[in-house]
Amino acid sequence: MSSISFGGLLRRPEAGAALGLIAVLIFFAIFGGITFLKPGGMASWLNVAANLGVIAIPLGLLMIAGELDISVGAMVPFGAMTVAVISGHYGLPIWLGVAMALTFGVIVGLVNGFLVIKTAVPSLIVTLGSLFAVQGIVLGLTVLITKSTSVALATEGPAKLIFGDFVLGGQLQVMVLWWLALTALYVFFVHFSPFGNWIFAMGGDKVSARNAGIPTDRLTMILFVLSSTSAAFVGMCQAILYNSAQVAGGQSFIFNSIIAVVVGGVLLTGGFGSVVGIFLGTITFAVVTQGIYYTDFDRNWSSLIIGILLLAAVLMNNTFRKMALSYAPKKGGKA
């Protein structure tokens, strides 16, 4: 921004997300006190935000590029089960389990991307298919191999420290550090490096982007690989953290990450949004789901708040986008 002004801030894609977060913080400060902003309370929602955020950012980038990936809901248990079966059930080295979990993430992402490029079927349908297919594989193979739907995994040493431990006094998951570092990386690549522009161009007008020389197919593949590998990574880290993996669970990530992305100001039709916005949207989501425990309300009410927040976000985002579009520099002020 050439000048920092209130109007200028409102035109940014993360404006709605920032306002939403402030509203939510005030709400919970009034009804639950500020315990959730003290270190102990913060850990509870930071942990939720971190696990969600690592998936929400690449998913949000896909949405900016005009695509969607709901197979992340199956990739979380897939990543968890892979490391648990290889390193827990078979007792092979943990690093092999880690490598295989990430490899499967890459493979499913490549398959998703390939199908979306080659068939021109909407990515919602393609990844709905891979969501069920991967769920089937995870359940089928796990029961076949281990005769159980839950597999234990004991990890020690550096792998535990890096992927699934508590840090800073024992309440904060190491995932929080991953989340912060990855967010910084994404911010650089999306908003500062020249390549970030390509994602927005692709979501704005794919044909024009391709004609302008942007490798849209390759970019689509990369984004799908990023989202499914990130989901597998989160699942793998959770298995290492909790010393076990379940075949079920993970579906909540689908809706939760889409909510975080939309609350974060990403336009559902693509072409508009920001990493910082998704970051704020993720925190907002986590504060609502965890902050409710610090109030006298029943926790079920948090769904109501999230529903309202989502609708408000979509409406606000439309308003902010119109403001951004109609922005023209003031004529009167100039000599």
């Binding site: 020249p194 927005f200 161009a201 704005g204």
Partner: peptide, 26 residues
Amino acid sequence: FPLMSIGRSFFVGVEPAKGWGPFKVY
């Protein structure tokens, strides 16, 4: 691209960068 800035849409695909190596910024 309607939701891109004039500068960014002008240079889509051939974005000018400053800096060096992996730290090139738009």
